[in-house]
Design a protein around this nucleic acid. Structure first.
Lengths: 255, 255
DNA sequence: GCGTGAAATTTATTATAACAATTTGCAGCG
DNA sequence: CGCTGCAAATTGTTATAATAAATTTCACGC
């Protein structure tokens, strides 16, 4: 029971959208008509529309024929809103890998029979691009290409929710790593090479339509990634400890 | 690049929240001060705050010492926003079970060593309540108790995201079933009895701290649930087809 | 037939004003 | 000391008005 009038209006419209009465593409009337019909003021109505717009359920445009129109919630919108939820839950990297170890292998098995030649070529290109970094500087862009490989796979899944969750977890990993200052560049360069090999082997498994092998390889890939991140974390925390010990040397000398 | 001033303000505040500069509990200044500081009007500011409120990032209260204060995004809020995304993606029941088959067994394994006596008692109570329905009318409340068992387990998980996703999937199943008019009561009463037995066996496995058995039982439970729902779906669609055939008999007689 | 630009439509923003509703905190009363 | 109720602070809602910005449509010229 929302006390606020604007919330009541927004919730009412939301229910009409979720019930299918207002399908995507439908246009709401203009502000003046709506304020009259809902017996409210222009500002209360605008607050309600802003709420729906934030939820990604409507889009408001200016101009003739403009106004609020119903839209499908985009994956990008859902992604951001779910990130809002996650950021304050101090998710650990192992928490994320616990889920990736469940979803990514299942995804690999599911898409093995579905991959067409074009997607396989894209996967190979991304894997090669990853490899090329081996000889140059490594950093965020390499990590993004790593996840790009997995996002390409996710896009093939016929399960919309699996697709979304895998992509979300991939983005989440980047964000959590950034938030905890676990830059993989901190660690030794030779630690990350497994990743490329797994990608190349995965493409092999895909090409021979061996779902079982693809799933197994993906699980091993996730385990290797988790181990790698654990090493990076250990390195980062030990260095942080060393730094703070040096900085606090004058205060912390008396036990 | 949001063209709208209110979106710019909302996004600016959101970034300050996500960066940790504005931690949960922090209070923003009142409307008058903020409009002055941000050099905007009261209405543009209020639209920005409404957006943040919809995202669950702030809470706005009246009264002295009121105003906008930063809050953690609740699981309930994230749940609703993610449901907005899912509802238009015509998720099938098998899509949902594909994920439940992955997450629920992992959850069962994870929580087996963590369950205390109190939670075990609650689980047993819920399972018993489910059994009691066997002799009475069956319906939505039974289904809710079914999911209640799983939600009790989810609450024990130390992984916040796994916890959230399992609870979300459970609610999602209810909503999708409702949206597709797949009321299990349509099917024969004897179809659903497996559920209770699995719950009782699961409690056994938990008590003997046998994570492997718990995971295996949970997977079988999910498979049984999926099969059950497939039967209900088949029944519902065949009945619907029969109904429409009867109704269209006069038109569809000429081939 | 095509492109360009002007016009019309609609939302976006700002300004001002007033009153209602809610909540806090204090003061007064029992 | 505790409870009640009033006062004050702050947001919530409505009203009116004016200008800016965006976008579509249409007409005009080429």
């Amino acid at each position: 029971m929302s006390r606020k009038r604007s919330d009541q209006i927004a919730e009412g419209l939301r229910q009409r959208i979720l019930s299918g009465e207002l399908p995507p593409g439908a246009r709401l009337e203009n502000e003046a008509t709506l304020t009259a019909r809902l017996e409210t003021s222009r500002w209360t109505l605008r607050e309600a529309l802003k709420s729906l717009e934030t939820q990604g359920l409507v889009r408001v445009r200016s101009g003739p024929g403009g106004g609020a129109s119903i839209t499908e919630v985009s994956a990008a919108t859902a992604n951001e809103l779910l990130w809002n939820f996650c950021f304050s839950r101090d998710l650990s990297v192992p928490d994320i890998y616990a889920l990736r170890k469940l979803l990514e292998p299942a995804l690999a098995r599911q898409v093995t029979p579905l991959l067409d030649e074009r997607t396989l070529a894209q996967l190979a290109a991304t894997a090669d691009r990853c490899c090329s970094y081996r000889h140059e500087g490594r950093g965020v862009s390499e990590r993004e290409d790593e996840l790009n490989f997995h996002n390409l796979l996710a896009a093939v899944s016929p399960n919309p929710l699996l697709r979304f969750l895998v992509e979300f977890l991939n983005g989440l990993l980047l964000k959590v790593v950034a938030a905890q200052h676990l830059d993989p560049a901190l660690a030794g360069v030779d630690l990350n090479y497994h990743g490329h090999d797994y990608h190349l082997e995965l493409i092999e498994a895909f090409r021979e339509r061996n779902a079982e092998r693809a799933g197994r390889l993906m699980y091993e890939h996730m385990e290797a990634g988790e181990r790698y991140m654990a090493e990076v974390t250990a390195l980062a925390t030990s260095r942080a400890a060393a730094r703070s010990a040096t900085h606090d040397s004058e205060e912390s000398q008396c036990p």
